[in-house]
Design a protein around this nucleic acid. Structure first.
Lengths: 217, 217
DNA sequence: TGACAAGACGACAAATATGTCGTATTTTCT
DNA sequence: AGAAAATACGACATATTTGTCGTCTTGTCA
């Protein structure tokens, strides 16, 4: 059954272990009115929504739409778009990620400098708030991933053998399938025209797992 | 002067460069009502607040209380540089497209029935307002396009030889590379394990060009 | 300057929300 | 098991919101 504002209002009240009369009094309405709201017979107005959220410590957006977390959380990624209830997938996160046209040498901190950020791309289902996108150069992973495609990488995700990753080795960046073996990492192109390379873990500046591919046809 | 919901509502409308009649229509109220809300004479209810936030792309919490950011901002890693507006791509089209889990037999008009719409996916750069997405079943186009991938199709775009298309022939749907030759269309799988097929144009119910591929890795 | 669009707002009717009151049912506690 | 608290809900009156209609003012554009 589709959840209503009233359903969430009741959840919020019950989580605070309040009865209807107590909450109604704190909001400034009679119990009958709160009952109508909880039943979905009537909808609280904007002012009442704000008061309910404050009194029950829930987030107004959650109360209105069900999106996001019920309670404020400092760990929550900053300012994800909230979709309208009628179209949202459960717990789906959409983000606008910067697309970097080339990964510059040097420190990671400078790579988001405006000179390298080419574009933004909108992506659903991004769990890592630090994710971003890279435009692929070269065909070492063709035909699966080709020059000009966009890959979304997740610095937070743990890379495992078999994953396709962006790896920086000695200030040089590459997109490869990886195989982890002891202190070595094998960088395996999918395109047979390229040779695999083995590098030492300690020579790797970073390794970012690719979580999504976006390709124009 | 303390800002009201109405003040923020007016700000949100003006930032979208919308007039009162346009926004009122999108929300589903008459202009007079919007004017009462903007003046603070009356307050929108919870449902209207949600609609206003969605239509103007502001955060509901900001609209209600003024707290937090007016707009959601793109997720970005720490130490991100702020981009100037000139770096943002202009006039980009973003669309939420229905993802159809299977293409039903019969009339095209019924295919968007909720029973077949599995999900929605957000896509940038869609020029055809009639575009939609399909979840791929089968591996005839592997390794480029695999089972479970999502393809965005554009009924408006003209299919040409060499394009990858969704084709319906005699009430059966298939995803193939096409070659147009006189009154015949050759349907060419990319996976060598499948055989090409030739069909007559007149037996083809529709042919939709694939314009974008979305793949989870 | 004049035409038109957009915005503002009052008056009134209709629709909806809220409060009051009372009764019934369910849940909780002893 | 019974009492009390909490919840539910219908009926009706009152309050408020919304829609309609019309008129006026302000802003924009040629």
């Amino acid at each position: 059954m589709k959840e209503t504002i009233g359903d969430r209002l009741r959840s919020a009240r019950e989580r605070k272990e309040m009865d209807q009369a107590t909450l109604a009094a704190k909001i400034g309405v009679v119990t009958r009115t709160l009952q109508r709201w909880e039943r979905g017979d009537q909808v609280p107005d904007g002012v009442a929504i704000t008061t309910i959220a404050r009194v029950t410590n829930v987030q107004p957006t959650w109360l209105l739409t069900g999106d996001g977390e019920m309670y404020p959380s400092p760990a929550r990624p900053a300012n994800m778009y909230e979709l309208s209830p009628s179209h949202r997938r459960r717990n789906m996160r959409r983000a606008e990620l910067p697309v970097i046209s080339s990964v510059p040498a040097g420190k990671v901190a400078t790579m988001f400098h405006p000179d390298y950020v080419d574009d933004y791309v909108t992506v659903d289902d991004v769990k890592d708030s630090g994710a971003f996108a890279l435009k692929v150069k070269g065909n070492s992973m063709a035909p699966r991933i080709e020059d000009g495609d966009i890959v979304v990488v997740s610095p937070q995700a743990e890379a495992r053998s078999g994953d396709i990753c962006v790896i920086r080795v000695n200030d040089e960046d590459t997109l490869k399938k990886v195989k982890l073996e002891g202190n070595y990492i094998h960088l395996i192109p999918l395109n047979p025209e390229f040779d695999p390379v083995t590098v030492r873990k300690r020579d790797v500046n970073f390794i970012w797992k690719v979580v999504k591919l976006i390709k124009e046809l």
